[in-house]
């Protein structure tokens, strides 16, 4: 991994949502530890996949990067500039360079605005006057995302989910960003349409050289899209690696479990038939996360050490540079040991 000059540099990023309670004076009685100390970089033009089960803090991470949320701790640097606590005004110069695509295409477009207004709004706010006028630019953008430019005056309710998501992409592109955070951009869409939207994003990423933080809840979609993948569990990154390393040599038990759920996951053809690992139980509450390794309540290899010592995110033995794993007992290519398997996992040839 070349850390020479990352576009986005996140270190120790933390977000705890306070839980208020009590009457009549409301006090903070606890905290949802949604994101707890993330470190990662995104290089220019690169796509980083951010994967994890629902509720593990992916959206919160995306919102922290785009500064929709105020980080509790840690820093976010964009092109070396610290934007962790920048106010709206201080943020203005880089605002247009970091954009976001949202998960729900039905909630992310204002139902009272026409497509033209939705897409030209960002230009209006940032006082951008493209040659030929904003309307012309909007029509261009509509064309880029594969919509009919004549739909300029239509309202969101006249479009299907996939088309709406394309409008969302056009809005994000309106400011010619350098980084787009895409928060599960296709998970609300029909399976048949997901691929089309992913292809569009891929085209945008490659042709316009935009860096992506692509959030997804399974490893299947990210695989086609991201050069690098980070796996999150309960607010922490448990494994981060280049695509080939992550899919071919998963070292963290959680990554392995996620990967076993991906149907056509056969990166290395000569690998033995993949065992299917079924994760039992739910993700524990981020209000009261397990001590030590947060995955230990569902891990088939957990020991005393896992309960007391949080495993650091480091380059495990046998990993390529840049392949970091947070586990005391990293996985090897061996099948999962039988005794544990009986307890927590299900084997399927």
């Amino acid at each position: 991994m070349s850390n020479t000059n990352p576009l986005l540099d996140v270190s120790g990023l933390t977000k705890h949502f306070p839980i208020k309670g009590g009457f009549p004076i409301r006090r903070t009685v606890g905290a949802v530890q949604a994101v707890d100390g993330l470190d990662f970089q995104v290089n220019e033009g690169e796509s980083l996949g951010l994967v994890g089960e629902s509720g593990c803090g992916k959206s919160t991470t995306g919102r922290l990067i785009t500064r929709l949320l105020e980080p509790t701790a840690g820093t976010v640097r964009y092109r070396g500039q610290d934007i962790t606590h920048a106010s709206r005004r201080e943020l203005a110069p880089v605002r247009s360079e970091i954009q976001m695509i949202f998960q729900d295409p039905y909630a992310s477009l204002n139902p009272r605005q026409t497509v033209g207004k939705i897409i030209s709004g960002p230009m209006e706010i940032n006082d951008i006057n493209p040659a030929g006028g904003r309307e012309k630019r909007v029509r261009e953008l509509l064309e880029i995302v594969g919509l009919n430019p004549e739909h300029y005056n239509r309202f969101p309710h006249e479009f299907s989910g996939g088309q709406r998501q394309r409008i969302g992409v056009a809005r994000a592109l309106a400011l010619e960003p350098k980084l787009i955070v895409a928060d599960e951009p296709v998970s609300a869409l029909d399976v048949s349409i997901q691929a089309q939207v992913v292809n569009l994003l891929q085209k945008v990423q490659q042709e316009l050289g935009i860096a992506f933080v692509f959030i997804a809840h399974d490893l299947a979609i990210v695989r086609h899209f991201s050069q690098r993948v980070a796996v999150m569990y309960l607010g922490r990154i448990v494994e981060i690696a280049d695509r080939e390393d992550l899919y071919g040599n998963p070292r963290h038990p959680y990554t392995r479990a996620l990967l076993s759920a991906v149907p056509e996951a056969t990166v290395d053809e000569d690998a033995p038939a993949r065992e299917r690992i079924r994760l039992v139980g739910d993700v524990p509450s981020p209000i009261n996360p397990p001590t030590g390794c947060r995955f230990r309540t569902r891990c088939w290899k957990a020991t005393e050490k896992c309960a007391t010592e949080a495993p650091p995110l480091v380059q495990a033995e046998g990993n390529k540079p840049g392949h970091l794993t947070a586990c005391h007992y990293p996985e090897t290519a061996d099948p999962i040991p039988a005794p544990r398997l009986a307890k927590n996992t299900e084997a399927a040839a």
Binding site: P111, L147, E150, N153, F155, E158, G161, D190, S192
Partner: peptide, 29 residues
Amino acid sequence: AAAPLEVTDESVEKPIASGSPKGGESRSP
């Protein structure tokens, strides 16, 4: 005529708003 209904590769999706009355006229809420 003003707004042809072909929507590039979205053939799988239901095409946009079939019942839009007149050309470019939009059906605002």
